[in-house]
Amino acid sequence: MPFDPQAPSEQDRSRTHALIWFGAACTLLSLVNRFLGMDNMMVVIAYGGTAGGLLQAALSRASDEYLRGLYNVGWRTMGTGVALYLMALFVFAAGDLSRQAGHWASSGTKPSDSMFDINGFLVDPISLCVILAILFYGGFAFAWLRDRFTTESSA
């Protein structure tokens, strides 16, 4: 293997493990901030740490294959969350469309009201980002904990 002077060292790789947990803690702080509100300095740290952790998971060269395996569970959890949210929108919208079609078929007129208000179903963008970050870190933490409880320990 050719020598790469920019290759991450073992310390760099170990540091990424610690930084991802810092990102997870910052995401929890972001969630608390959405409900309770926090000091501006804490908000900056919370959002910065959340974004930094996700960027590290997506782009960092220092992540090794074990850590990337844990990231993958996080990404899948986040993707599943997005899919379920969109699926719920689809089901409600399809139900509403069916009702309107039934009303039109029986009376020949379009109903004036709508059973499903899509605007009431959407959350604000910042909360949505925080929820998605929580899903990522939740999946990551689940995979990490699953490993702890299903295998032997080593010094």
Binding site: A7, E10, R13, S14, T16, H17, D64, E65, Y66, L67, G69, D147, T150, T151, E152, S153, S154
Partner: peptide
Amino acid sequence: LDVSRQAVNAIETGKH
């Protein structure tokens, strides 16, 4: 091996 200490531990204990 160009991996982290945590990765070595995970391989040794069969987690990875």
